[in-house]
Design a protein around this nucleic acid. Sequence first.
DNA 1: TTGAAAGCGTTACCAT
DNA 2: ATGGTAACGCTTTCAA
Lengths: 339, 339
Amino acid sequence: MHDLTLEDIARMAGVSPSTVSRVLNNLVGTRSKAREQVLKVLAETGFQPNAAARSLASQRSQVIGLLIPAPASTILHNPAVLQLAEVVTQACHERNYLLSLFLLGSDTDEQQILPKITRKGFVDGLIVRGADDRASDPLLHRLSDSGMPFVSFGRPIDLDTISYVATDNATAAYTAIAHLLTLGRRRIALLVGSLEPYASQERLTGYRKALTDRGVPVDEQLIAVAGMSDGYGATRRLLRHAPDAIFLPTRMALDVLRVLREANVRVPDNIALIGFEDLPLAQQTDPPLTAVSQPMGAIGKHLVGMLLDIMENGAEPPRRLLFPQELLIRQSCGAMRTS
Amino acid sequence: MHDLTLEDIARMAGVSPSTVSRVLNNLVGTRSKAREQVLKVLAETGFQPNAAARSLASQRSQVIGLLIPAPASTILHNPAVLQLAEVVTQACHERNYLLSLFLLGSDTDEQQILPKITRKGFVDGLIVRGADDRASDPLLHRLSDSGMPFVSFGRPIDLDTISYVATDNATAAYTAIAHLLTLGRRRIALLVGSLEPYASQERLTGYRKALTDRGVPVDEQLIAVAGMSDGYGATRRLLRHAPDAIFLPTRMALDVLRVLREANVRVPDNIALIGFEDLPLAQQTDPPLTAVSQPMGAIGKHLVGMLLDIMENGAEPPRRLLFPQELLIRQSCGAMRTS
DNA sequence: TTGAAAGCGTTACCAT
DNA sequence: ATGGTAACGCTTTCAA
């Protein structure tokens, strides 16, 4: 017993394949008896059309892909990626697209796997999480060459032909630092994993500007680079320069808190903390971490909206969208001190 | 200028479409000059065959799907899911399949989206992360009905027709508790998020058996249920019964450690800790957490291998595979005390 | 080894 | 509103 095809359904319903196809795609004007009949057979059989045949004939798969460059280190330490996946998935479903996630584990993957993903007839468009830890992202170049419509989450550095949605890290940093200044902090440190990512540069910019605007001198000793994993060492070094606040990557919060505990420095009394991003971890630390947060729901909707726009109207001119971020005040910066 | 098709390539290379197809699929015995010619044109044009057409004609998409039931709460708190995705992706790539990840955010998704995923011509098979927090998983039933080949990661409770790979939580718990007993602990507590998941039941079984086997009485007061998020409260309550060790969900490590710190109970001197699973978090806590670990790499390979086997040879009889787990000894249980 | 041609299961155009 | 039929771009069988 072979699988049912649309023709079988047509026969069973006593109509032509065309009619079944129309019913399946809701393309029938009035509700005729033919339609009713088809609907009945459809329900009885639980028929689902063959996806490949449909894609081939219609030249659309109704699938959008989300590309995630994921050397284990990156993704496992970055729950934000998951959140992106969730909101984009949701946004796609709302617009009647299916979302497929693809993990590109290595550079090899990018060369072997990416071409299979960008093949025509597979997905209709792609959303990419820009690898913002490289000045030039080869992935984006490859995508441009592939001809597949796509948008980037994160600002591409060296290509101004790419459509993207990004968040404004400079302003976010400015806001965070300004908040700390308002709370009376003066020796505010900036801790980053690396200075290379564009995001880090933006934060540094916002950091400097906030201080300068208020006439607080920038002490270069208070700008620390942790490297990918050693938040512990970097914080210890930082402590020698007596900061009274640290603007840090949220994922390093545990390391930082441990150093402070060992040094008997109390949060937020002796030192205030604000995290770059709002990971679940921020709510679990002791004290809970004040953090900068991105409006991920809206970002997801706009990524999908922008992509559909490009799929329909072409990639020219490139679209750009910069989202503001928000400061979520918790206990680590002392703003909620009951005093 | 329309996209190139295989016929175009054939024309350009002066051969028939069949020949191009054969070269594309490495189906040519000897290396003839025709083959060379095609290869040259292929390289020059960067031609990629249309995925839909290929799937339709060959009745295979060379794509495997990984289904992740992901109400935000679950996935965001469960980095283990990411690890699963990574190892399965890797295993698929090694066997020349593409892996697509699908997030099923809600029950609605399962009803709206799942049928699109199980349509013929879309993916060739599915791997599902069994939602082990429900006694009966409707998703697995739906999949069974769909006719799509699939395997589950995690043991299905109420269906013995399903092929799966799982890990042996009972033995793992037994090992962990035995280790604590060896270290001289006697009042060993078991903390779980909920008792419902099958995994919890298995751990409880192993816990009881380990104690009983050594003649240590089971104190029911030392078995605590935290609920999804309140590890803090549960640990405080637990503390009233003076445990000298806790076997806990690793994701609750921060909460537990906070309570202990507040109560001036030192780890591992006064209390030993072992986590259920080996999340990245386990290495970041202070002290680093001894934890039970699953051989994820091997699990990924076997999931894919089992699925391919089913795709080729049918789902009967169901395959089953139970993996042992390993105890990763770090500082939180005192086994490495330098004394 | 290579080519011709018949599908694969839809959609969409053109009639009716 | 419905049916007939030609694509869609590839794989695969059968001959040569």
